[in-house]
């Protein structure tokens, strides 16, 4: 920290560091201060996201190298193994050709995985509803939304309640397993972004692995003020999002 004598708090300071954020070069309190600013500033957040995408494009220039023989088969086998394990899929009735033996199991497993995910989501939604029914009046949801990925896959639910401060409950049932298995994901440092109708954007850190897959946050605003809730990575890329609709 001796090279960063001041913590970034203004747009100008954060913009200067935006490439470092996008490249994952910041650490410690400087990074925390920068992220705290991004939580409040959509323009700086968009700046960082654009820079991160540009940095990814540079990687197209990486030198190519031939991996050891059988690499692709091992990758496909590993993915098949993960899919089969997670949904306890039955062993394939008959092996396909080549890598298709594992891959065909994978093809069977994916719909099961999706179905299991839906069931878990439904269970989570029911759990939230049951929990709310046992709680006091302030927990009655004012608005809810499904958390969906950019491809429209439902991966969880969000509910907001309370006249202010509002309570934001996010549940992404697969999240804990993802974090357990893969650390912080492809871009790391996931946060929940809560966007209000007035344009204010609040960023809350997703708990570390083991912190569960249901998260509750408090917002100094009425529940009706919450417009969207998203899970974003450290570069501001959206993993899933839900636009709240009144119950």
């Amino acid at each position: 920290m001796t090279t960063e004598p001041t913590l970034p708090t203004t747009c100008e300071e954060v913009r200067e560091l935006a490439p470092d954020i996008a490249l994952g070069l910041l650490t410690g309190e400087v990074r925390a201060a920068a992220l705290a600013h991004l939580e409040r500033c959509g323009a700086c957040r968009a700046d960082v996201a654009g820079l991160a995408s540009a940095a990814d494009e540079v990687l197209l220039l990486a030198p190519e190298a031939t991996p050891p023989p059988g690499f692709a088969d091992r990758v496909l086998g590993r993915i098949a193994e993960l899919g089969g394990t997670e949904v306890a899929a039955p062993a394939p009735a008959g092996a396909g050709r080549g890598a298709g033996g594992t891959a065909s199991r994978w093809r069977r497993a994916r719909p099961l995985l999706a179905a299991a995910a839906v069931l878990v989501v439904l269970a989570g939604v029911l759990g939230l509803a049951l929990a709310r029914s046992r709680d006091d009046a302030p927990a009655t949801p004012v608005a809810t939304a499904e958390m969906q990925t950019g491809r429209g896959r439902t991966v969880g639910e969000v509910a907001v309640s309370g006249a202010g401060p509002a309570t934001v409950e996010v549940q992404v049932p697969e999240w804990d397993a993802l974090v357990d298995r893969w650390g912080t994901g492809p871009s790391g440092d996931y946060h929940v972004a809560i966007e209000l109708h007035d344009g204010t954007r609040l960023l809350r850190p997703v708990p570390d692995a083991g912190g569960g897959d249901a998260w509750t946050f408090t917002v100094e605003a009425p529940a009706e003020a919450v417009a969207t809730v998203s899970v974003v990575d450290g570069a501001g890329r959206v993993w899933c999002s839900g636009r709240l609709l009144p119950v």
């Binding site: 993802l178 893969w182 492809p186 990575d233 890329r237």
Partner: peptide
């Protein structure tokens, strides 16, 4: 590759 498969939905 495995991460890409797991996080495929996050690709934009």
């Amino acid at each position: 590759f495995v991460r890409a498969w797991r996080f495929a939905d996050s690709f934009d």
